[in-house]
């Protein structure tokens, strides 16, 4: 039985590790997270193998013969076995939790010289502000240089949205009335998709934006071309923005005017 568990566990692990489950990797966070996933897959394969082999073994070995009306052995339990299958899972999950914690600290570490980008989410569009480049802005297309840490400061103007670039392995909700941020170091040049993953209304499905990771030189060339001034609404600090919203609401008299309602 032990042999069967090991064989099945190994076979499962090998098969499952062949696949690139999380898709392309394009940030420094991807590698440690994917390794964590691989470790979890191997451990899970063995646990699943134990359950399957034990079940299969029991079914083959102790299936009642037709017409056998007898009972099984009156075994009520085995304290040693019960302690073992309590303690070992505790050790496994605490180990995985510790490992996850280490990975979390690793991927969320911020550099002092990280670049800041503002992300404005609204139904159903993304807008990006580049405060370090003289308040340049872009709509529906996010550009960042490769190999430089970026901190995205997220703002939502109406309902909750969520900022997810699958290849970066990061996700964070943009919450109205709250400051959230998320840190990432893109390490692969390319075009990716930014997906809103928090249900935000009718247009949720199509609330996407393009993400362009490019060399520092390309980035500088691109940002120079962005000559527009940031629209007044976006330039406001969060407090100012909500203050304006509030005044509008009071003028229109009620939650209807807050812009929260889509109809």
């Amino acid at each position: 039985m032990v042999l069967a568990v090991i064989v099945l566990g190994v076979i499962q692990s090998v098969i499952l590790l062949q696949f690139d489950w999380f898709g392309g990797e394009a940030s420094t966070a991807a590698k440690p997270i994917d390794t964590l996933m691989d470790v979890t897959i191997v451990l899970s394969s063995f646990i699943f193998a134990i359950v399957c082999v034990a079940l299969g073994y029991a079914l083959i070995k102790w299936r009642a013969k037709p017409g056998d009306e007898g009972d099984g052995l009156p075994i009520h339990g085995n304290t040693r076995l019960e302690i073992i299958w309590t303690i070992i899972p505790v050790i496994i999950v605490l180990g995985l939790a510790g490992y996850s914690w280490a990975v979390l600290n690793d991927v969320e570490k911020t550099d002092a010289d990280a670049m800041h980008v503002n992300v404005y989410a609204q139904q159903f569009a993304w807008t990006f502000g580049y405060p370090e480049e003289g308040n340049k802005w872009s709509e529906g297309e996010l550009h960042v240089p490769v190999d430089r840490q970026v901190i995205f400061d997220l703002q939502a103007q109406d309902v909750i949205h969520s900022f997810w670039v699958p290849e970066w392995r990061i996700k964070k909700d943009a919450v109205p009335g709250l400051s959230t941020d998320v840190v990432v170091t893109p390490d692969k040049i390319g075009r990716y998709q930014l997906i809103c993953t928090e249900l935000c209304g009718i247009g949720h499905t199509t609330m996407r934006a393009t993400v362009v990771v490019e060399s520092e030189a390309d980035y500088q060339a691109w940002i120079k071309k962005q000559s527009q001034e940031v629209p007044e609404d976006l330039l406001l600090t969060k407090d100012q923005f909500y203050e304006t919203q509030k005044q509008n609401e009071e003028k229109s008299g009620g939650i209807e005017g807050s812009g929260v309602i889509e109809e």
């Binding site: 034990a54 029991a58 102790w62 299936r63 009642a64 056998d68 009972d71 099984g72 075994i75």
Partner: peptide, 9 residues
């Protein structure tokens, strides 16, 4: 699983 062992399933 332990219940199944040594039973008459």
């Amino acid at each position: 699983l332990g219940t199944l062992f040594y039973g008459k399933i």
